[in-house]
Amino acid sequence: MKHPIELKINGDIYSLAVDPWRTLNEVLREDLHLTGTKLGCGSGDCGACTVLVDGRSVSSCLTLALEVQGKEIQTVEGLAPSGDTLHPIQEAFVEKGAIQCGFCTSGMEMSAAYLLSQNSSPTEQEIREGLSGHLCRCTGYIQIVDAISDAAQKMKQS
């Protein structure tokens, strides 16, 4: 039986009827076409599906949509302030070469946003720990770590 719910995503309210077994990942991608959030494994191991729920990073593939009713959900689509301005994290990812195939990128950025909300000047080691729930097969992580470190500095300055 479908449950009527309201989801607050990137500040917008969506009214939906959702089957209990559908995950937040499925609802974001299939019902709302917010496809910036990816699905890489379905087991919470790769991090490609990471979104923020009430400010905390979670795996959307292991979150039932019904469980996040009434919470603030933020996806990669909600990071940039406007169509022609990027979030400092996104900017740093672009500039530092942190993006190759891009499939892990949105999840990495969301975890970076969570990390920097908890710790505004993380050490390199803390950044690496902050990415412990992510896999990337292209970059070897080095330029991603670099980008997050750069974003942290920029965000502190502004």
């Binding site: 959030t37 996806t75 070469g97």
Partner: peptide, 17 residues
């Protein structure tokens, strides 16, 4: 920077699925 970097950073790059 890669020509697709902004699209990928914004989650706007469309993959098959």
């Amino acid at each position: 920077p890669r020509n697709d970097a902004v699209a990928k950073a914004r989650g706007a790059a469309v993959y098959t699925d």
